[in-house]
Amino acid sequence: MFRKEIILPILTFVCIVIIWELITRYSGWSHQVFPSPLSVLLSLQELASNGNLLKHSVASLFRVSMGFALAVILGLPIGIVLGLSKTAKYLFNPLFQFLRPISPLAWIPLAMLWFGIGDLPAVFLIFLSSFFPMVVSTSTAVESIKPTFFQVAANFNFSRYETITKIVMPAIIPEVTTALRITITIAWLVVVAAEMIAVQSGLGYMILDSRNALRMDYVMVGMIVIGIIGLLLDLIMQLLGNIESTAWGRLSK
């Protein structure tokens, strides 16, 4: 049971906590500036038991799922169309390539003006952060489908609809699951930033609010929870890529 891939990561984290403890003990920094591991742990327990942590996590997760889901629902079909049609590609690809490198955070002023205060601007920013990578990776995946598969489709008299459901969609599953993994990570990065401006809830808001109250222990609790949830989101997406029907993608390449 003493397996390297389990023992070594734990060892790293243990070392980090020990170094952290040593710094807070001997660096001379006050606990207000650099809280010790133990005080962060106690704060974590406090925030968890009074329900604040859950409330903020749920708020953040809600915004991420809304924005992310919207990006996937719109991004996948648009990506497929761009991948299949040269006309659509030349019409819209330059626009998407142009908008893609603009950080979603640059949209904050406009998002607040357009959508006011509340969940909407945050959802909008997350949507922007996920939509463009989704479109681009989907269309690239469609373009890289082996021509043989389209020839098979033509040979067996597939309709347009069948070509999309039986060839295109299954063929891009491996690339799309990878894209989902990368995109959800970006979305999670953006939600925290988005919550520092327009809302009264969420982990981003919690961090900002704790900073204003000079509670660095709460700030650190926020960071740790963000890290853990981010890991879990990635794990879920990874499991999605492991289900049976997508196994061919990993095994036949």
Binding site: T148, F149, Q151, V152, N155, K166, I167, I173, T246, S252
Partner: peptide
């Protein structure tokens, strides 16, 4: 292409999914 005229591919033409 039509289905009374079936092509068998050099490298497998089976749909891997």
């Amino acid at each position: 292409p039509r289905s009374d005229n079936i092509f068998v591919f050099q490298h497998s033409g089976l749909l891997p999914w």
